[in-house]
């Protein structure tokens, strides 16, 4: 215990642990609960049965009523512990409830029906993970379809984004031509015009091109990101021109120079753009909401939104789907956090 405390209060350089250190720790622990708590709560809840979800106040872990198969009854019956009255201490299964009285049966003696006041019985519960919330997403709902739509849009859009943006960045970083500054400024200026401003006319262009209700209607408007061009151009400026000239001496085509020299050398910046693009497209909501109106074209985000009905929300499946949607991003976060945070800190974009 002392070593643990010693570790937790350890500080580099200076000695001692003063009031501000305690306050900082309290803040951080509270922050951790506030940031992770709700997510963890959703993960735990996603394993609960409908009955357990309806329980109030809720239990932390997913509990479900224990059932028992009793001879002479088709369905398994719920098991109760009797806490008072005539049968105190016994475990009985409930057949049905009539008003304040429950008709119960002892699993050992299936023929005898017993009457118990409902106040005198406590449901027997056991920890049970309702994996069916997840499996039913595939069997009863079109989850695989939504997943495929999301993956398709994310992967294709990211490949095109990286390709087009790096080509443009290469041209702007490694060639001197008339209009270079103008083109660069024009691209940077579009940072000022987020797509949210041009929803109506972009919708016209997309519908003219026949891409409404098609994943391409989501992909094409999103691939020419000014952020990507800017990020890659800044990085490519640091690649020495001598390398390119040496390749040209060996009669490499410009395409080869770009593909074989500049692209591999820009790998760190390309990695950052790839991660950004994956996050952007995976999390996109408003534009897909406008373009994709048929449910078989829905991305995961749209499906999640449509699952929460106006009046009745099917929480057991919605929660499972929420968890499956946040899972990939959580993996990205766990393994690539460093790339993402340095990328953001350097470029100031997200």
């Amino acid at each position: 215990m002392a070593t643990v405390l010693n570790f937790l209060t350890r500080r580099r350089g200076r000695h001692g642990f003063d009031l501000t250190d305690w306050l900082s720790w309290a803040y951080l622990v509270f922050g951790t609960v506030l940031m992770f708590g709700p997510v963890l709560w959703v993960v735990l809840s996603s394993f609960k049965t409908d009955a357990a979800l309806a329980q109030y106040p809720p239990t932390l872990l997913p509990f479900a009523a224990k059932t028992v198969a009793v001879e002479g009854y088709d369905k398994p019956l719920e098991l109760y512990r009797i806490t008072g009255g005539e049968y105190q201490g016994r475990h009985l299964a409930e057949i049905r409830r009539i008003g304040l009285v429950a008709q119960m049966v002892d699993p050992a003696e299936p023929d005898k029906r017993l009457k118990v006041n409902i106040k005198d019985r406590q449901p027997e519960q056991a920890l049970a993970f309702a994996v069916s919330n997840y499996t039913e997403l595939f069997s009863r709902f079109n989850f695989a379809r939504y997943l495929w739509n999301s993956v398709f849009i994310t992967v294709v859009a990211t490949v095109i984004t990286v390709l087009f943006n790096s080509m443009a960045a290469f041209a702007l970083a490694k060639y001197k031509f008339r209009g270079r500054t103008a083109v660069f400024l024009l691209i940077i200026a579009t940072l000022m015009i987020p797509p949210t401003i041009n929803l109506v006319p972009i919708f016209l262009v997309v519908s003219k091109l026949g891409m409404v209700n098609s994943p391409w209607g989501v992909i094409w408007p999103a691939v020419a990101t000014p952020t990507g061009v800017f990020l890659l151009r800044q990085y490519m400026l640091t690649i020495p021109d001598d390398l390119l000239d040496a390749a040209r001496m060996d009669h490499a085509s410009e395409w080869r120079v770009y593909w074989r020299i500049v692209m591999p050398l820009s790998a760190p910046a390309i990695a950052v753009l790839t991660i950004f693009s994956v996050m952007w497209r995976w999390n996109d909501f408003l534009w897909p909401l406008i373009v994709l109106t048929r449910s078989e074209q829905f991305t995961l985000q749209l499906a999640l939104n449509s699952f929460q009905g106006e009046l009745q929300t099917n929480w057991s499946h919605l929660l499972a789907m929420t968890v499956l949607t946040l899972l990939p991003i959580t993996f990205v976060f766990a393994f690539l956090q460093k790339y993402i945070t340095t990328g953001i800190a350097q470029s100031g974009v997200k």
Binding site: R10, R14, L28, G31, V39, W41, V42, Q308, L319
Partner: peptide, 29 residues
């Protein structure tokens, strides 16, 4: 200068990556 600084940084950054729909549903629940 606090122990577990890297971890706490991750904690506050994590929700940034979540999709808006997921964020809204988490809190709605």
């Amino acid at each position: 200068d606090i122990v577990l600084r890297g971890f706490f940084r991750g904690v506050f950054f994590y929700p940034v990556l979540l999709s808006p729909v997921v964020v809204a549903l988490i809190w709605k629940w």
